[in-house]
Simulated assay, not measured.
Amino acid sequence: MSEPDPLGTVHFGVGCVAVLAGLAALLSRKGQVWHRASGTIFAIAMLGLALSGLWLSLARDILFTVFLSGIAGHAVLTSWAAARRQALLSIFLARWSGLVSGGLCLGAVAGGLLAASSPEGTLNDLPPEAFYLLAGVSFGLCVLDLFYARNTSPQRVSWLSRHLWRMGFAFFLATGIFFFGNNHVLPEVLRTPWVLSTPVLAVVVWTVFYALRTRFGPWLSTLRASVPVGNDAGR
């Protein structure tokens, strides 16, 4: 598979757009116009990043990033489908996304076995464990995809948390690739472990916080309302 000359530049450009749009969506108020607009730009940019990354990976015979691109694209598409659950494409993705994540899992396991059986014990200069890590991530996605597909009428908390944490996971991949793989564009003074890791860790903290709040917030509110307060507690 040939690699067009400008594809690397396009890949880097859409990656920058994805990081900036993801940051805008993260900082804006959820559900507002700016949040939806920046989220849409982020999703489109991430799909472009995943597709261009897949093309580059196939052209350069880098199997590891083939699966990484597939996982990123899958996370974005299924997140979008959860938020736009009434669209025909969203319904299709909700029903059959488990096949894609399952296929990524099997492919990553095969990559790990190839790495383990090679004379050097590596593939793409990576040990088998790197591929098995992607297989584990894909397996987790597959299990959640299958559970979600069985729910024909998901409650708001279900589809909202699915949308939120998968977008956050995709943003984690985008920031990780940018700050640890393409940080040469940053001034040298910023290329320190603390500076480079802070945005990535911030995305993880943000995703975990809002995913937990979305999933368990209604339950905690109901529990709090059922607990007597003040003098009522002693009656």
Score class of each variant (00 low, 15 high):
Met1Glu: 10
Ser2Glu: 15
Pro4Lys: 05
Asp5His: 15
Leu7Ala: 11
Gly8Lys: 12
Gly13Phe: 14
Val14Tyr: 06
Val14Asp: 02
Val17Gln: 01
Val19Phe: 04
Leu20Lys: 05
Leu20Pro: 04
Leu23Ile: 13
Ala25Leu: 08
Leu26Asp: 10
Lys30Leu: 03
Gln32Gly: 15
Trp34Gly: 01
Trp34Asn: 00
His35Phe: 09
Arg36His: 03
Thr40Val: 11
Ala50Cys: 06
Trp55Ile: 12
Leu56Cys: 05
Ser57Glu: 10
Ser57Arg: 11
Leu58Cys: 09
Thr65Asp: 06
Val66Lys: 11
Leu68Arg: 10
Gly70Tyr: 10
Ala72Pro: 00
Ala72Lys: 00
Val76Ile: 15
Val76Asn: 12
Ala82Tyr: 03
Ala83Tyr: 12
Ala83Phe: 10
Arg84Leu: 13
Leu88Gly: 02
Leu89His: 04
Leu89Gln: 04
Leu89Asn: 03
Leu89Ile: 10
Leu89Gly: 14
Ser90Met: 10
Leu93Tyr: 08
Trp96Asn: 13
Ser97His: 06
Ser97Arg: 01
Leu99Pro: 00
Val100His: 12
Val100Trp: 14
Gly102Val: 07
Gly103Thr: 08
Gly103Ile: 07
Cys105Ala: 14
Leu106Trp: 07
Val109Gln: 03
Ala110Arg: 00
Gly111Asn: 04
Gly112Glu: 03
Leu114Ser: 06
Leu114Arg: 13
Ala115Glu: 05
Ala116Thr: 05
Ala116Lys: 12
Ser118Gln: 04
Pro119Met: 09
Gly121Asn: 10
Asn124Ala: 10
Leu126Ile: 02
Leu126Cys: 01
Pro127Arg: 07
Ala130Glu: 03
Phe131Asn: 02
Leu133Gln: 09
Leu133Met: 06
Gly136Gln: 06
Val137His: 06
Leu141Pro: 00
Val143Met: 09
Val143Ile: 13
Leu144Ile: 02
Leu144Ala: 06
Asp145Pro: 00
Leu146Val: 15
Phe147Lys: 08
Tyr148Val: 01
Ala149Ser: 15
Asn151Leu: 05
Pro154Phe: 03
Gln155Phe: 14
Arg156Met: 11
Ser158Gln: 12
Trp159Ala: 06
Trp159Ile: 08
Trp159Tyr: 15
Trp159Ser: 12
Leu160Val: 12
Ser161Phe: 08
Arg162Gln: 13
His163Cys: 01
Arg166Asp: 02
Arg166Asn: 04
Arg166Lys: 07
Met167Val: 03
Gly168Met: 01
Leu173His: 06
Ala174Pro: 03
Phe179Pro: 08
Phe180Arg: 12
Asn182Cys: 04
Asn183Cys: 04
Glu188Cys: 04
Val189Ile: 12
Leu190Phe: 09
Thr192Gln: 14
Pro193Ile: 07
Leu196Glu: 02
Ser197Arg: 03
Ser197Leu: 05
Thr198Ser: 07
Leu201Cys: 00
Val203Gly: 00
Val205Met: 08
Val208Met: 03
Phe209Lys: 11
Tyr210Val: 11
Arg213Gly: 14
Thr214Trp: 10
Phe216Trp: 13
Phe216Asp: 05
Gly217Arg: 09
Trp219Ser: 15
Leu223Glu: 13
Arg224Ala: 15
Arg224Gly: 09
Ser226Glu: 09
Ser226Tyr: 02
Pro228Tyr: 02
Gly230Val: 03
Asp232Gly: 01
Asp232Gln: 14
Asp232Arg: 14
